[in-house]
């Protein structure tokens, strides 16, 4: 008899991009096992606080449990300190939570996006045992190999020379970032069988920075709860279902 395997891969892909004073965290909503689609709507991106969003990808059962435990730790923090945990502290918390399971890991790649205490947009990416780094953009999941080089080119302007006397911007405006996220997922949907069905994009805006054109986006929905100043939104889009 074959031995019990506690892990499986559930497909899907996640992606996050940081702007100067905003952050976008996105994921598709397909959940699959091998060639079977289990559901066309299983969220992989979760609101933690009004300035932090967590995307999880890999083994869905572990992912959901992990998000549940992170949310629980953040609630305890709120009760103890009467405020939301800062983003960089959430990142360190996630590292210690992942590493505490070093020899029976959560089989999950995490990407944390949000606003830092200084008001800047941030993205933190993790491996399953807690090694992490702050970056401007990151893709994870089965379509990482399709998306990451595209982001290198379009976000970091790799292999592109600026016009004489000019320089590449370090951060893109929100409209450009949203367009890139949608293009990335339509491309991944076209060429990867585990990506598709639906797209959820969470947008976290820094304090008092206005809507940056978000008011014009079709189907945008606000999820802000607190009065701290940061605002959080979700935009949903259909992806091909084949």
């Amino acid at each position: 008899m074959s031995s019990f395997n506690p892990y499986t891969q559930n497909g899907g892909t996640i992606l996050a991009i940081a702007g100067a004073d905003f952050s976008v965290v996105a994921g598709d909503t397909r959940q699959s096992e091998g060639y079977n689609i289990q559901t066309r709507y299983a969220p992989k991106v979760f609101r933690l606080t009004d300035r932090a969003v967590l995307a999880v990808n890999g083994f869905a059962a572990d992912g959901n449990m992990f998000v549940k435990k992170v949310k629980q730790r953040l609630e305890w923090y709120r009760h103890a300190h009467a405020k939301d945990m800062p983003l960089r502290s959430i990142a360190r918390l996630i590292q210690t939570m992942l590493y505490s399971r070093r020899f029976f890991p959560y089989y999950v790649y995490n990407i944390l996006g949000g606003i830092e205490e200084d008001g800047s947009g941030a993205v933190y990416s993790f491996d399953p045992v807690g090694s992490y780094e702050r970056e401007t953009c990151r893709a994870a999941g089965p379509a990482q190999s399709l998306l990451q080089p595209f982001l290198d080119n379009q976000i970091y302007f790799k292999n592109q020379q600026p016009a004489p006397g000019m320089s590449h911007p370090t951060h893109l405006p929100l409209q450009a970032v949203l367009a890139l996220v949608i293009d990335s997922f339509t491309s991944a949907t076209e060429r990867h069988i585990e990506v598709g069905d639906g797209l959820e994009m969470y947008i976290i805006l820094g304090k008092g920075r206005g809507l940056q054109g978000l008011e014009g986006v079709k189907g945008v929905q606000e999820l802000t709860i607190s009065e701290d100043g940061e605002r959080i939104f979700v935009v949903r889009r259909e992806l091909k279902k084949d």
């Binding site: 379509a143 190999s145 399709l146 998306l147 990451q148 080089p149 595209f150 290198d152 080119n153 379009q154 790799k158 292999n159 592109q160 293009d183 990335s184 491309s187 991944a188 076209e190 060429r191």
Partner: peptide
């Protein structure tokens, strides 16, 4: 992944050169 994002129909020789070069260079760098 790159070609799916960068390529578009009816590119002229110069634009096609830029598209295929960017696709290849950014692809092989990863």
């Amino acid at each position: 992944g790159l070609a799916e994002g960068l390529w578009e129909p009816d590119l002229g020789p110069e634009d096609l050169f830029e598209t295929i070069s960017q696709t290849l260079l950014n692809g092989v760098d990863r």
